[in-house]
Design a protein around this nucleic acid. Sequence first.
DNA 1: CCTAAATAGGACCATGGGGGTCCTCTTTGA
DNA 2: TCAAAGAGGACCCCCATGGTCCTATTTAGG
Lengths: 164, 164
Amino acid sequence: MVLFRLHEGCAVLRLSKLTDYAVVVMARLARDGALPEGRVQTAPGLALATGIAEPTVAKVLKILGQAGLVEGLRGARGGYRLTRPLAAVPLSEVIVAIDGPIALTACVDGGQGQCEAQGICAVRGRWDPVNDAIRRALSDITLADLAGPTRCAPATHFAQLVAE
Amino acid sequence: MVLFRLHEGCAVLRLSKLTDYAVVVMARLARDGALPEGRVQTAPGLALATGIAEPTVAKVLKILGQAGLVEGLRGARGGYRLTRPLAAVPLSEVIVAIDGPIALTACVDGGQGQCEAQGICAVRGRWDPVNDAIRRALSDITLADLAGPTRCAPATHFAQLVAE
DNA sequence: CCTAAATAGGACCATGGGGGTCCTCTTTGA
DNA sequence: TCAAAGAGGACCCCCATGGTCCTATTTAGG
């Protein structure tokens, strides 16, 4: 399972800040019409719109681009746009793009040889139902469910704004 | 959601090592008959049985004791025993005991005033379905599901054993 | 009554992974 | 030809976690 701490020390599950940013940035792209075949939005512009630092926005967009979740157009008048509408992007895909595969323990899928060789790990394999449940929950929710019809800012960055 | 990294860098969701240890230690308590009203098991003994460092085992047991998941008996011939059978302990309770409340973002439950004051966070509140789904998944699985009938070692510690 | 064994409850420190920034190269429209 | 923008890295700092240790308290047993 993923526990999101977000530095408030109140939550066990951690969602990486970058994933939080990614959701916000993609929601902003959708809001501004940067949809497939639509007009693009620049990283500096998205930084201004969301309040997230520009280098960070650029970093997130590059990662999302590698994962195919956004399309980057280079050169002057370049920018980014979504490759799919938000409703077609499960949250799990964003998490995987930013943080990697979703699993609770290292005892998943791979690593069988190790555990069996030692023969002391009876827990091995039993985390699978948990992992599956988590993955399913994350796959059933799309970015359209998270992004409201209006503008938004990341929860984490918001805390920074308040603190300043 | 909770992502368990476990230092292999392959998983997005992170489960804290201490939680991993807690599951293993509690499973060992059950295996050795340290059930409610049963005989107790000492921290040093559990350390030997599980291969986890003794100070770490002691720390985990103290935390579990504060959460009421185990009962500690002081003095000579003292030790720990479970307060409930494993089948009555949802995984979520162990996670909460070790890491704190389970939630994906800080935008949950509390913090309403902040977000509304700023008026820029449209995502707020929309994480709730995700959080609920995760909590539900973690609550539906008990330690009995994770702990096999035989002995076990934590996945993380196991990796250390292999590496050495 | 005294001692040993064990828990309770802290303080304390090191480390590594993530967040964040910056630099260079490439592409492309005007 | 130039400026704007993405692509792809390298790089650094911070702090949360994991791990250890110390002291006080409790208690069985001789």
